[in-house]
Design a protein around this nucleic acid. Structure first.
Lengths: 156, 156
DNA sequence: GACAGAGTGTAGCCTAGGCTACACTTTCAC
DNA sequence: GTGAAAGTGTAGCCTAGGCTACACTCTGTC
């Protein structure tokens, strides 16, 4: 399978967009999967942050998003454009950013996953500071299977 | 701190290369860190794979690397060029790829970290298949602090 | 109600990491 | 020792994700 980008399915899950015909013969393409997961990471971060801002401040403005993410406002605006193309967000010029149904669904999945990952790190003895920090990167690579296992472990 | 790329320090650790003067005021740049970590991930994968190939087959050829990583040989060659620029690898045309001291050091750190991450996932109940798969992405975001915690947990 | 400052958007540039297409070496079988 | 196949390298293209610089729109104060 050749991947030409990513897209978002109806359940709000970010999946690779198939590009070519040739069916992937190699099973050692775990790397490819890790790479594709990365592709959705940024979008996930944006969606989660926008959802947070909407909840706490009642609005999500490009400058606030940029500041929180540590990028320039131009970068934020460009990515918001991508969010719109992917059907995750809505935005009219000078009128702030909002999430579509799909975007909201994704946001809550991401939020829930983040919580579980941090809790698991804490549970195995990672200091809070490092747990929060590392979870930010780790969470995007945690599959549903692994997430379920984390959840079971935490309930014990 | 503005980051213009990454570089490798004397201990074989991949670190961001500082670019501009302005000292980062925002502490919410956890995101930035997760992003920078990603930048080193590819190099780490290449170095680990090259080390494996050198150990098992006695040589590391671009085509083998490409096949194992699931990318075209052209992409592999381009990245090998980057590895050379970063001082991690050595290669003469048509003569295979080798690692520098720094590259070998990085490879063993990466290998060790990978093992710990997989073991931790298994220890908390993640099925082997998913553990191997997810570790590939997760490992690049595990800080030394977190790694040490994983290690302590596994020794219990 | 005008205007300064904050926020927003656009253009254009850069690098990393992908790809295909094409040209050049090596190697190995005969 | 030659010629085909396999491997290698180069060129050129694309997208994502960054940036700065500049222009435009809002907003709040006087």
């Amino acid at each position: 399978m050749t991947v030409t980008g990513i897209m978002v399915d109806s359940a709000g899950t970010i999946v690779p967009r198939p590009g070519g015909l040739p069916e992937e013969p190699t099973q050692a393409s775990r790397f490819g999967k890790a790479r594709t997961a990365q592709s959705g990471a940024l979008l996930e971060d944006y969606v989660e942050l926008i959802s947070d801002l909407l909840g706490s401040a009642g609005e999500a403005r490009p400058t606030d998003i940029a500041r929180r993410l540590g990028v320039s406002h131009a970068t934020a605006i460009k990515t918001i454009g991508r969010l719109k193309r992917e059907g995750l967000a809505l935005a009219k010029p000078y009128r702030g950013v909002f999430l579509t149904e799909t975007g909201e669904t994704l946001a809550s999945r991401v939020r829930a996953r983040h919580r579980v990952v941090v809790d698991l790190l804490l549970a195995v003895g990672v200091p809070r500071e490092a747990a929060e920090q590392d979870a930010e990167g780790i969470e995007h690579h945690v599959s549903d299977t692994t997430l379920a296992a984390f959840d079971r472990f935490l309930r014990r």
